[in-house]
């Protein structure tokens, strides 16, 4: 189902972040929100996830119970180990017991198997980020929301995780929505890039990546950004 945002308005005090903002995110695509710091990307994701209340407008096509969200900060529980942090979100939901093999495969993927019994305070920033990603993968949501998920990660691991996200997307076909400051990341992972500016947020450009030369897309985005 498409996610349809219509006439959305939202502000913090005097600061207007969304003013009559509309956007349709088609299912089957991988959406990237690309925009400068402070323009309102996280706020949009929080509105989608129901963590912020909108002032007016509608958001349709989202089942908020099925969102796996990688927050901009790791949001790990400090007194639980890596493994317990992941188990925290997959626990019995009345249905299936936590799938141990699945969990172990995910730990393997984010290269944290040998750190599974460590506490967050014992991990580096990039490692914590990987736990946060692992938690989202383990949750198996229908909507995968990633807020700058690869920041602070080494290039090789970043590529590997992006490949995993792509593979995961091929298999499960979740609604994929992510934000980034990195053009190459945007082009590598998404099928649709929305270049945002604001606040208040407006869409400066909507670029489709699929089937095009990557360098051409990057060139196009950079040109858009330079235009004032």
């Amino acid at each position: 189902m498409n996610i349809k945002i219509t006439n959305l308005s939202k502000g913090f005090g005097k600061l207007t972040i969304f003013d009559d903002f509309s956007l349709t995110l088609e299912s089957g695509s991988r959406h990237c929100l690309f925009g400068p710091s402070g323009c309102g990307k996280t706020t949009l994701l929080n509105l989608l996830a129901g963590l912020e209340t909108k002032e007016s407008g509608t958001i349709e096509g989202i089942d908020q119970r099925k969102i796996a969200y990688v927050f901009q900060e790791e949001r790990l529980i400090p007194w639980l180990t890596v493994r317990e942090n992941i188990e925290f979100v997959v626990g019995e939901k009345g249905k299936s017991a936590p799938d141990v093999a699945h969990l172990e495969a995910i730990l393997e993927l984010v290269e944290l198997t040998s750190f599974q019994n460590h506490y967050p305070s014992e991990l580096s920033g990039g490692m914590k980020q990987r736990v946060s990603l692992a938690r989202a993968f383990a949750y198996n949501g229908e909507i995968l929301v990633l807020d700058e998920p690869f920041k602070g990660l080494h290039h090789d691991l970043k590529l590997k995780l992006m490949d995993y996200v792509l593979k995961y997307w091929e298999m499960e076909r979740p609604h994929l929505i992510f934000t980034t400051h990195d053009v190459e990341e945007a082009v590598y992972l998404s099928s649709d890039i929305y270049v945002l500016e604001g606040p208040p947020v407006s869409i400066k450009a909507h670029t489709q990546v699929s089937g095009r030369e990557k360098s051409a897309v990057i060139e196009e985005i950079l040109t858009t950004m330079r235009r004032v």
Binding site: A49, L51, I67, Y69, E73, R75, I77, G91, Y139
Partner: peptide
């Protein structure tokens, strides 16, 4: 509050939120 939001998004059972957060 950020941990509580996380638990909310991931639909964690209230009992677990109480015991583990």
């Amino acid at each position: 509050q950020k941990l509580l939001q996380m638990a909310k998004v991931y639909q964690v059972h209230r009992r677990d939120v109480f015991l583990k957060i």
